[in-house]
């Protein structure tokens, strides 16, 4: 069942993030694909995440599709101008890829090629608008296409924020994204379900499915690192404490993630698991969450 039909029929969606490696070795991806087959609604492939140069999202989506998985093609505005973005979208369509996730993209200066020229010719709102144009059979300047696309576009939102400005800016941008065709949202990692429930209340009227982000904790260090450096991630002290006291950190981290998923199941339309190196443990986390 496609991501579109799962979300449209109101079923709970599970997507898992897959990060291609640097280089041409695809063994890892193929192993992960086998483990995830039948367990998740879709696999979501990052586009040179954190501005680190890696194997491309489009080719990886194609590989996953061949293995029988439903891919979500992540596309950032960081590296391609409007010609390249549109052309890659047409390529994705002919390869049978249905889902695209439009993102702004991290700054190149934060990655492993800080010398690179940032592009940002379009922003994430305009990229969604462009996807919609292609779906209607036109490019962004209005030329007619020989054969249109049929994408199910998604976008991202950060539900937990530290300033009023950031929250309002996120909500207004979310509405803009919906206005230009975003059909689903996935969020930054959620650790505080009460806060997330408040966010869900505020976007109730928006009428789009929301997949809550879940990142399993691997260590106390990781939790502290994210609190300090990853915008929009707030791991509560209580969870950090639990990790600190745990004998088996990995088991506890997976347990916390499974419990989060159980609770989130009641307040949103799906979860988006970002395992960051723990892709192979996703089935076990889902087992523990009863999914």
């Amino acid at each position: 069942m496609s991501l579109r039909s799962v979300l449209e029929s109101g079923k709970f969606a599970i997507t898992a993030e897959v990060g291609p490696l640097k280089g041409t070795d695809i063994n890892e991806i193929e192993e992960v694909a086998e483990l995830l087959l039948g367990r998740v609604t879709a696999t979501n492939v990052t586009d040179q995440q954190s501005s680190v140069m890696r194997l491309g999202s489009l080719a990886t989506c194609h590989l996953l599709k061949e293995k029988g998985l439903e891919p979500v093609f992540q596309m950032t505005c960081r590296d391609r101008n409007r010609l390249a973005l549109q052309s890659d979208l047409l390529s994705a369509h002919v390869l049978g890829i249905e889902n695209v996730l439009a993102l702004t993209g991290d700054l190149p200066s934060l990655g492993d090629h800080p010398q690179a020229k940032p592009v940002y010719d379009l922003d994430s709102v305009q990229l969604l608008w462009a996807i919609n144009r292609l779906n209607e059979g036109y490019d962004v300047v209005g030329n007619e296409l020989h054969g249109k696309t049929d994408f199910f576009p998604g976008a991202v939102v950060t539900p937990e924020t530290d300033t009023e400005a950031k929250l309002e800016l996120q909500l207004i941008k979310m509405e803009k994204k919906i206005a230009v065709g975003a059909k689903f949202f996935q969020t930054q990692a959620v650790y505080n379900v009460d806060n997330f429930a408040k966010f869900m209340k505020r976007v109730e009227g928006f009428g789009v499915p929301i997949l809550a982000g879940v990142i399993p904790l691997k260590s106390v260090g990781m939790a502290r690192f994210m609190n300090k450096n990853v915008s929009g991630v707030f791991v509560p002290e209580e969870l950090i404490d639990k990790m600190a006291k745990a004998e088996d950190k990995a088991a506890t981290g997976m347990d916390i993630a499974a419990n989060l998923i159980k609770e989130l199941k009641h307040i949103c339309q799906g979860v988006h698991l970002m395992a960051i190196g723990w892709e192979k443990r996703v089935p076990a986390i889902l087992d523990a969450a009863g999914l």
Binding site: T104, L107, P118, D123, Q126, V157, T158, G232
Partner: peptide
């Protein structure tokens, strides 16, 4: 990033 339709999700404080 020179964004013109609103903020990215990257700001902290």
């Amino acid at each position: 990033k020179g964004l013109i339709n609103g903020a990215c999700g990257g700001a902290s404080n």
